[in-house]
Design a binder for these strands. Structure first.
Lengths: 144, 144
DNA sequence: GGACAGTACATGCATGTGCATTCAATGCAA
DNA sequence: TTGCATTGAATGCACATGCATGTACTGTCC
């Protein structure tokens, strides 16, 4: 017959479902809103944001794909195609890396920066609405 | 030029990234492990679990699709196809609802219950590893 | 009863994703 | 130098997803 979860397991499952619900709500809303108004998916926005941040640190809005990869939760192939979409949309530029010619350097175009700046307020607004009040399961410790 | 996020927005973004990371780690691990060893995706397992829970409440392991839908974070079409996969795999049975012939009633087969019972320990274990102690566990190789 | 809006689920289609593979460039060793 | 394992990224392919639509059934209003 069915064995029951231990209290620890039950708490784990509860946290997992909470995480699933929050993720679904935010991700779904972000995809819809950003897609509708700016033609960007959630991950596209995320990549643009990393490029903007990379620019602040570096100098020329440039970032290696291999540096970007660990920060976005996508497979290597998915990231490659996402970048291809961004390039096709004129938001980033792919160029060969000088020091290692296997590598690709991403440059944010002016249009890319503008699109990001325009989309950011909506992104923050959606997050505030979906994550806003509650302090999520992500940071809680299972106790009961 | 770029306007900076307010402290509140920065906190929101930090929470969002944390949530993304946790979700990616757990979801990826669950999909891989459950898929590899039991031929189940994360959502497939989730649906089986709802059916098992539904059985505990009801009597005959039966649940309307329309009752199931709000508890899984999938579109209606995705859920329909997921159920078709489960049925094809012999884990659930679709039958017409007597009281409302538009509706579909799902019944967990014996094989479905067995598969669930077998998979559950691994499911809990993966959750414990990704949500529990290990913080930042990624689906990819941990960057050393 | 008949017309009609609404609900429950299935399906065609376009797209995004991951896995496996491929191609090119690098680093190392003999 | 040549040979070989490794790394960075692109691509073929299978598949899961969401949107829009289709189909079947229900309930209501006339």
């Amino acid at each position: 017959m069915a064995e029951l979860d231990s209290p620890a397991e039950a708490g784990l499952v509860a946290r997992w479902r909470e995480l699933l619900a929050r993720h679904a709500a935010s991700a779904c809303a972000l995809d819809r809103e950003l897609g509708e108004r700016f033609g960007l998916g959630m991950s596209e926005f995320e990549v643009l944001e990393r490029l903007v941040e990379g620019c602040a640190a570096g100098g020329g809005h440039a970032l290696r794909v291999s540096e970007l990869a660990p920060t976005v939760h996508l497979s290597q192939s998915a990231l490659s195609r996402l970048i291809a979409r961004l390039e096709k949309a004129g938001l980033v530029t792919r160029s060969m890396c000088e020091s290692d010619r296997r590598g690709i350097v991403l440059t944010l175009t002016e249009a890319g920066r503008e699109r990001y700046e325009q989309a950011r307020p909506l992104h923050r607004e959606v997050l505030a609405q979906t994550l806003g009040g509650g302090f999520g399961a992500a940071c809680e410790v299972p106790s009961d």
